[in-house]
Simulated scan of single mutants.
Amino acid sequence: MSDASERLAAVQAGIQRACRDAGRKDRPLLVAVSKTFAAEDITPLIAAGQRHFGENRVQEAQAKWPALMAETAGIVLHLVGQLQSNKAAEAVALFDVIHSVDRPSLVTALAKAQTAANKRPACFIQVNIGDEAQKGGCAIPDLPALLTQAREANLDIAGLMCVPPADREPAPYFALLAEHARRLNLPGLSMGMSSDYQTAALLGSTVVRVGSALFGSRG
């Protein structure tokens, strides 16, 4: 087995254990976050069977993914980083899922872009679950209004996304996001990264976004 195959198998096994411990019959979707990694770092994971990949920046994804997708059918591309409104058209053109819808101006830009492109990517509303000033995400009190605007704009809202505070235990934040999703009748939960994806799976995540556990540490 290659290193990529071994890492992928290890992460999948960790997800499976967490789901078993939680009594879940389903499993969260694994998105391999390939930001900052070159095409030659990504192709071994594609060869190992991984098809869902995440990127943080539109421009970086544009530079490497069209060629990779031309070589392999079935690639699904997720934008997991912050999105500027002026990049909405480019994001809609390239990505299948956008995890970082967090403000009214971006909803408006995405609605315009998806109408022009005749393409409707799935979207997650990013919630600033730890109320951190330096982080993107919708403030919790503003969440119902943003969801209403997004639905009225015909965005395909799959659920909620969060990045918990880095220096705190993530479980309470994951549980809080799950509670808001239940209240808003949203099925999707994009939560959990390399350090905490098993905790997220225990608490109901439907998408985990894993980078270093699959690719190794970034330079």
Rank of each mutant, 00 (worst) to 15 (best):
G130S: 13
P144I: 04
L155Y: 04
P165V: 10
N185A: 15
L143C: 12
Q126D: 12
Y197R: 00
A158V: 03
E132Q: 15
A122I: 14
M191Q: 03
Y197W: 01
A158K: 04
R182D: 08
R182V: 10
P187R: 03
T148A: 15
C138W: 09
P165W: 09
M193S: 02
T199C: 08
P141I: 09
C123E: 10
S194G: 05
H180M: 08
L155P: 02
D131V: 06
A150Q: 07
A117L: 14
D167L: 12
D167H: 11
K119H: 11
A153G: 08
A133T: 12
A122M: 12
I140G: 03
G137E: 05
N185H: 14
A153Y: 09
L160R: 02
K119S: 11
I140S: 10
E179W: 05
A145S: 14
D196Q: 04
L184G: 12
C138H: 06
A158I: 04
G137C: 09
R151C: 14
G136L: 05
L186H: 06
E169I: 04
G192P: 00
L147Q: 02
V207G: 02
R151T: 11
L202M: 06
V127T: 09
M193L: 07
A181H: 01
L202E: 00
Q134T: 15
Q114F: 09
D196R: 01
D167Y: 05
A200E: 00
R182T: 13
D156A: 13
L160S: 07
R168T: 11
S205H: 00
A171T: 14
R120A: 14
N154M: 14
D142W: 06
L110K: 06
C123S: 09
A117I: 10
L203N: 01
D131L: 05
F174C: 06
N154F: 11
P121G: 13
G204D: 04
A200I: 00
V163Q: 01
P141W: 06
P141V: 09
Q134A: 15
P172M: 10
D131Y: 05
Q134H: 11
G137V: 06
L176D: 09
A150P: 12
L143S: 12
C123L: 12
P170E: 01
L160C: 07
R120M: 13
T148F: 01
G136N: 14
D142A: 14
P141D: 15
Y197S: 00
V163L: 12
R120E: 10
I140N: 02
K135F: 08
R183D: 12
E152P: 07
A133W: 05
C123I: 13
D167V: 05
F174I: 11
P121S: 10
P141Y: 06
Q114V: 11
T148R: 11
C138N: 11
G192T: 01
D131K: 08
R120L: 13
L176G: 02
